[in-house]
Amino acid sequence: MTALRLTVDGAERHLDVDTRTTLLDALRERLEVTSPKKGCDHGQCGSCTVLLDGRRSLSCLTLAVAQDGAEVVTAAGLGSPDALHPVQQAFLDHDGYQCGYCTPGQVCSAVGMLAEAAQGHPSHATDDLEADPELTDAEVRERMSGNLCRCGAYAGILAAVQQAAGAARAEERA
């Protein structure tokens, strides 16, 4: 067992873990933080996505011991029922889910993706690698391709992410 310190959704947490424990299992099974979901557990579905030191990451593909000292933000830590994060509100506004199982991962992924785009990161869908990317629908689809939705709520997810992207741009201009 290895002693570990994590900041999870703003709270400092201490735990002892077996070295083989993934960050996802440490969060869900040891810390009872059940917002990130276990879908495939092989890095193919994105439902375990969290913000790890500020960047969207798959918590199923990293060992908890390797993240000692890290700051983890899950979808549950982004906002509260009374004060939803703009991305959470956008998913509600546009029905960006059906069963909801992939939603916490979708929300974290969208938040991380919007930050990447704001920093000028290109994607596979970007024509001009040297220009600041514009978040067209094709760009959003490509950048969110690591999050699968078995209910097929992609049309709502796309609309939600576009609403949140628009809100983020308006805030930038203000």
């Binding site: 994105g46 996505t49 798959l58 290109p122 391709s145 690591g146 999050n147």
Partner: peptide, 12 residues
């Protein structure tokens, strides 16, 4: 690089 994996995996 951008043709491979997903945004999350490329961060890791």
């Amino acid at each position: 690089l951008l043709a491979g994996a997903s945004g999350q995996i490329r961060n890791q």
